[in-house]
């Protein structure tokens, strides 16, 4: 049974179809990187799966549960963690409150231990306002938050945007170890090609709302094939 199964999904904004009849399936524990230039439908794909955008056609199932018509909070409660590209933290709340909001399981302490394993510095900053963290620290808090929820499926929108190489490396390490330890399935929307190829099992390029090409990251010509779609 697929951890995430999307069939013929179309979505977009009033009047403009951005995503056109896209299908994909993720096996449990699989990491897929969705690449592509801006405006090609990458974020739209995640928002449509979460139920933030209307699904004009198609169906979505999460671990076999029908999720096409669910509102975002119901999708989240199926064990889906969504990390939006922008405004993904409550800036005026403390680090702890940001974590508490996402972590619905009763053993908050155990969840904190999870956070400590990946990002120990956050434990010392629990009372700090999230908005006062640096850009890199905010992204790490985002990652920590979605992993600590125990989500089985993560939808992550450009977590690497604007980050220093060292932070990107660290996020890559955390993602790989989360998959090893918990078998978390992930759909990563990325612009950072080296990061995407390093953490994902498969890649797919979205071009004008459709998958133009897909491949396994183990194939040696992946980088060249993706770049062909990305830039000059």
């Amino acid at each position: 049974m697929s951890a995430l199964s999307v069939e013929n999904l179309s979505s977009g904004y009033a009047g403009a179809v951005v995503l056109r009849e896209v299908s994909l399936a993720l096996a449990p524990g699989e990491i897929l990187a969705v690449l592509g230039k801006n405006g090609m439908g990458k974020s739209t794909l995640l928002k449509a799966v979460m139920g933030f955008l209307p699904k004009m056609t198609g169906t979505v199932a999460i671990s076999g549960s029908e999720a096409t018509r669910l509102s975002p909070h119901r999708v989240a409660r199926l064990g889906v963690g969504y990390v939006a590209q922008e405004k993904a933290l409550f800036q005026d709340m403390s680090v702890e409150e940001n974590l508490r909001l996402a972590i619905r399981r009763p053993d908050f302490e155990a969840a904190l231990a999870e956070v400590e394993a990946s990002f120990p510095f956050l434990l010392q900053r629990l009372k700090q306002r999230a908005g006062t963290l640096s850009g890199g620290e905010q992204k790490m808090l985002l990652m920590a938050r979605s992993l600590a929820t125990g989500a089985k499926l993560l939808l992550v929108d450009e977590i690497t945007e604007g980050l220093q190489p060292s932070v990107i490396d660290r996020l890559a390490g955390v993602i790989r170890s989360a998959r090893e330890r918990h078998g978390t399935t992930m759909l990563l929307v990325e612009q950072h090609l080296p990061f995407a190829l390093a953490v994902a099992d498969r890649w797919a390029v979205l071009d004008r709302g459709e998958f133009a090409e897909t491949g396994a990251t183990s194939e040696p010509d992946s980088r060249a094939r993706v770049l062909k779609h990305l830039s000059v």
Binding site: F121, G162, S166, I168, V174, H192, L193, P194, F195
Partner: peptide
Amino acid sequence: AGSGHAGIDHETAPTPSQEM
């Protein structure tokens, strides 16, 4: 290609000791 991290190698390795 790299969202601007010109020159970084895609051989990423976790370096948890680094603190931002």
